[in-house]
Simulated assay, not measured.
Amino acid sequence: MGTAGKRLVQATLAAAGAVALLATAAPAANAATARNGICERGEFCYYYGAGFKGSVSDFSGPVANYGSTQPGCYEFKTPGQPGYGQCIKNNARSAKNLTSIWVVKVYYNSNFGGPNHTYNPGGEGDLGSLAAENASHDYELVS
């Protein structure tokens, strides 16, 4: 390869590196931060209390097993609110689905088993019969 060819390859690699750096330098505006205790657009969120009260546990994807004891469980994350730091398994009372393309199903058992309660995109409400009896949730694309 001649000098001109080497310079073209170097310039192409430098440009690609600059694009990659820009793409990873900062998160996109309005991007949700999962597991920060704030229910944001694009997330599925549990609340410790009925009617969306208390500490929040927010997710950006499915979880097959919440775990039931610290330190190995998913917990409520909003400091200063009732439920903060407690494991969510069997402690959630209400939920919001702030995703736009996912149906989220909350299951009675771990590994997506047993009775479930469905939250369509934008759906919210108390967990009904699964309040205090929830162990996993799964995401399904809206059909």
Rank of each mutant, 00 (worst) to 15 (best):
T3W: 02
G5W: 01
K6F: 00
K6V: 00
A11W: 05
T12C: 08
T24F: 05
T24D: 06
A26E: 04
N30T: 15
A31E: 12
A32V: 01
A34T: 02
A34Y: 09
C39I: 02
R41M: 15
G42D: 09
F44E: 04
Y46F: 15
Y47R: 06
Y48N: 14
G54R: 00
G54S: 00
V56A: 00
D58E: 13
G61N: 03
S68K: 00
T69R: 14
Q70F: 11
P71A: 11
Y74D: 10
F76G: 02
F76I: 08
T78F: 00
T78N: 12
G80W: 06
G80L: 09
Q81D: 04
Y84C: 02
G85Q: 13
I88T: 04
N91R: 06
A95G: 14
N97L: 05
N97M: 11
S100F: 12
S100L: 09
I101N: 12
W102I: 15
V103K: 08
V103Q: 01
V104H: 05
K105R: 04
V106G: 03
N109Y: 15
G114H: 02
H117F: 02
T118D: 01
N120F: 14
P121Y: 13
P121V: 07
G122A: 14
E124T: 10
G125E: 14
S129H: 13
L130S: 14
N134K: 12
H137Y: 13
V142A: 04
